[in-house]
Amino acid sequence: MVFVTRYRIRARPTQPFAGERTQARPGRGLEFHELRGYAQGDEPRFIDWRAFARTGRLYTRRFQAEAPARFTFFLDGSPSMGLLGKQAFAERVFRLLVGLARPEGVFLWGKGRFRGQPAPVVEGPKALLSAPRPGGVTVLITDGLDELDWLRLLKRLRRVVLIQVMAPEELAPGFTEALLRDVETGGQLEVGPAEVRGYQEALEEHLLRLRTTARRLGSYALLRVGEPILPALLRQGVLEER
C-alpha cells in the first residue's frame, strides 16, 4: 500500500487546552523549536540567514526532537459493535491504522506486541477503567455508546486517538415509532417522535463531548460504516503527512 509510506497517525493534540504550552525538547525533528547563537561546530545548513540579515549575527535553528510513539490498540468487541456492520468495518479501520503505526511499534491492549490478528475486547471500553494505563498512545476504536464515564476514561488514557465507528442509521434514525431492544442489557423501550428527537439531541451532545476531549488529548474521527476510511481520517486530522 503506497499510502503507508506517506501518512502516519497524528499523536499530538489537534485541539490543545486553552493556555496550554507544549514541552518541546531540542533535537533533529521537523518542527522549529528555537534560535540560539551560532557555536563552532554547528551545521551551516541550520544557520538562519534571515536572522543574520536583520541582526548581523549568526543564529542556528533548532528543532523539536521526534521520539517514536508506541501505539496500543484497543478494538471494541462489545455486543453493540455486532450491529449494522460496525465490527467488520472497525476491523478494516484497525488494519489500516496498524499498517501505518508498525514502524513505531504496535501493541494490542492486554495482548502484548501485535502478531497479525485483531483481538476485539468483548467487555468493551469499560475494561480500560480498571486496567493499568497503557503506555504511549492508545488508539481506541469503538462506537462510543457504552454507558460509562467517557470523559474520565479518555483523561485516564492521557494520550489517545479515538476512532468512533457508527452506522448511518444510528446517527439519523429512519423511523418515528419503534420498539427497541438493548442488545447489551436485554431491556426494551417503546419510542415515538418525542423520544427520537430526544435521542438525537442527546447523541449530538455526547459526540461533541467525545470529540472535544479526544482532540485535547490527541485526535478524533467519527467514521460512518461504509464510507472511505483513508479520506475521512485525513479530513478529520487523525492522519498527517510524514
Results as ranks from 00 to 15, higher is better:
Pro13Asn: 14
Pro13Phe: 14
Thr14Tyr: 03
Thr14Ile: 12
Thr14Asn: 03
Thr14Gly: 09
Pro16Ala: 05
Pro16Gly: 04
Phe17Tyr: 07
Ala18Trp: 08
Ala18Cys: 05
Gly19Met: 13
Gly19Asn: 11
Gly19Tyr: 12
Glu20Trp: 08
Arg21Leu: 12
Ala24Phe: 01
Arg25Trp: 06
Arg25Phe: 07
Gly29Ser: 09
Leu30Ser: 08
Leu30Tyr: 01
Phe32Thr: 03
Phe32Ser: 02
Phe32Ala: 04
Phe32Cys: 06
His33Ala: 15
His33Ser: 14
Glu34Ser: 14
Glu34Pro: 03
Arg36His: 10
Gly37Thr: 01
Gln40Tyr: 07
Asp42Gln: 11
Pro44Thr: 14
Pro44Asn: 11
Arg45Gly: 01
Arg45Thr: 04
Ile47Asn: 15
Trp49Ala: 13
Trp49Leu: 15
Arg50Leu: 05
Ala51Trp: 00
Phe52Pro: 05
Gly56Cys: 08
Arg57Asn: 15
Thr60Val: 08
Gln64Trp: 01
Ala67His: 14
Ala67Met: 11
Pro68Ser: 08
Ala69Glu: 15
Arg70Asp: 08
Phe74Gly: 13
Leu75Glu: 05
Asp76Gln: 06
Ser78Lys: 03
Ser78Leu: 07
Ser80Trp: 00
Leu83Ala: 09
Leu84Tyr: 02
Gly85Asn: 03
Gly85Phe: 01
Lys86Ile: 00
Gln87Tyr: 02
Gln87Asp: 01
Gln87Met: 08
Phe89Cys: 02
Phe89Asp: 02
Phe89His: 09
Ala90Arg: 01
Glu91His: 09
Arg92Val: 01
Phe94Gly: 02
Phe94Leu: 05
Phe94Ser: 01
Leu97Gly: 03
Val98Asn: 02
Gly99Leu: 06
Gly99Met: 04
Leu100Ile: 11
Arg102Gln: 12
Gly105Lys: 07
Val106Asn: 05
Val106Gly: 05
Phe107Pro: 00
Arg113Met: 11
Arg113Ala: 15
Phe114Tyr: 14
Arg115Lys: 13
Gly116Val: 02
Gly116Lys: 14
Gly116Glu: 09
Gln117Tyr: 04
Pro118Met: 08
Ala119Asp: 13
Pro120Gln: 10
Pro120Met: 06
Val121Asp: 12
Val121Glu: 10
Val121Tyr: 04
Glu123Ala: 15
Gly124Phe: 06
Gly124Glu: 13
Gly124Gln: 09
Gly124Ile: 00
Pro125Met: 12
Pro125Arg: 09
Pro125Thr: 01
Leu128Trp: 14
Ser130Phe: 07
Pro132Thr: 11
Arg133Glu: 13
Arg133Phe: 00
Gly135Asp: 15
Gly135Thr: 15
Gly135Trp: 02
Gly135Ser: 15
